[in-house]
C-alpha cells in the first residue's frame, strides 16, 4: 500500500493551473526527487501534499499508517529564523506538535523522541546552544531532527541544499541516504538534477503536468533527461 497516492491532482491559483492532472505514488522506503524548472508547480504540489493548499480537482490518498499531519517536513529556511532566539532542544521538540495537547510542557515520551532524533543526527552536544549561533549545516541538521520527531515514515524536503557549501551538501545527502536505508521514505524537491539522479531512486519531472515519473535508470535513458542535463551544463 503506498504512503501517498495522487490521482489526477489539479491545483490552481485563481484561474491559472499550477499543477495539472498529476498522478503518482510514493511507496514506503522510496527515495523520490521532484525536479523541474522554476514555476513548474513543484512547490505547489508540495503544498498540496502537506495540506497547506486545497486541490481544485483530484485526490491525495494517505495509506500505510501515514496521515497528512505526520509528514516530516523540512521547509526552506526563512529570514525570521536567522536571528531567532531558541535553543536547539526547543526547535527539535516542536516537531512533536502533531500530537494533540495543551499546556506549556511536553510529555516525557515526546522528550525521549526528541533526544533520540538529536542522537541520530549527532547534535546532542548542541542541545543547549542557540539556533542562531549555529552554522548553516548544523541548522539544517536541527530542522531535520525536528522533522524526524514528526514522522518515522516520510520526510518531505523543499530545496534542502540551497545556500549550503559543497562539503555540507554532500554530508546532508549522506545523512539522507542513511535515513532512507533505515526505512524512512524521502521526497525531495530540488533544482539540482545532477545530485538528484545520483541519490534518488525515482524521479518525478514536472512542468505543470507530469513529464516523467519512474525510476532513475529509466530517466537517465530518456531524451528529457538529456535535454535537462545538457541545458544545465551551460
Amino acid at each position: 500500500m503506498p504512503l501517498i497516492q495522487c490521482e489526477n491532482l489539479t491545483m490552481s491559483y485563481e484561474n491559472r493551473n499550477a499543477v495539472e492532472n498529476v498522478s503518482f505514488s510514493i511507496e514506503p522506503g522510496d527515495y523520490l526527487c521532484i525536479v523541474g524548472e522554476n514555476g513548474s508547480g513543484k512547490s505547489t504540489l508540495l503544498k498540496g501534499l502537506l495540506g497547506l493548499m486545497r486541490p481544485k480537482n483530484g485526490k491525495i490518498l494517505f495509506g500505510d499508517g501515514l496521515t497528512q499531519t505526520s509528514i516530516g517536513y523540512l521547509p526552506q529556511q526563512t529570514v525570521v529564523q536567522r536571528d531567532f532566539p531558541a535553543s536547539v532542544q526547543e526547535v527539535v521538540i516542536s516537531g512533536c506538535l502533531h500530537q494533540k495537547g495543551f499546556g506549556p510542557f511536553y510529555k516525557p515520551s515526546q522528550r525521549t523522541a526528541a533526544n533520540a532524533a538529536m542522537e541520530k543526527l549527532n547534535i546532542t552536544s548542541l542541545r543547549k546552544k542557540s539556533y542562531r549561533a549555529l552554522s548553516g549545516g548544523q541548522q539544517q541538521r536541527v530542522l531535520l531532527a525536528r522533522a524526524l520527531c514528526a514522522t518515522d515514515k516520510l520526510l518531505l524536503l523543499d530545496e534542502p541544499v540551497t545556500g549550503l557549501d559543497p562539503v555540507v551538501t554532500s554530508d546532508l545527502y549522506a545523512l539522507l541516504k542513511q535515513l532512507n536505508q533505515e526505512g524512512v521514505a524521502i521526497v525531495m524537491v530540488s533544482h539540482d538534477i545532477n545530485c538528484s539522479i545520483h541519490n534518488a531512486r525515482k524521479i518525478l519531472h514536472m512542468n505543470t503536468g507530469v513529464l516523467f515519473f519512474g525510476s532513475v535508470e529509466a530517466y537517465r535513458k530518456s531524451a528529457l533527461c538529456e535535454k535537462f542535463l545538457g541545458r544545465d551544463a551551460h
Binding site: L52, Y73, F84, V91, S94, Y106
Partner: peptide
C-alpha cells in the same frame, strides 16, 4: 499563553512547518 505556548513557539519560529503539523 500558557495553554498554547508550544503552538505559539512553532508558529513564530516556522509557520510553514507548524501549519504542516496541523496547527
Amino acid at each position: 499563553f500558557l495553554l498554547f505556548y508550544r503552538q505559539l513557539f512553532a508558529i513564530t519560529f516556522d509557520e510553514a512547518f507548524a501549519r504542516a503539523t496541523g496547527i
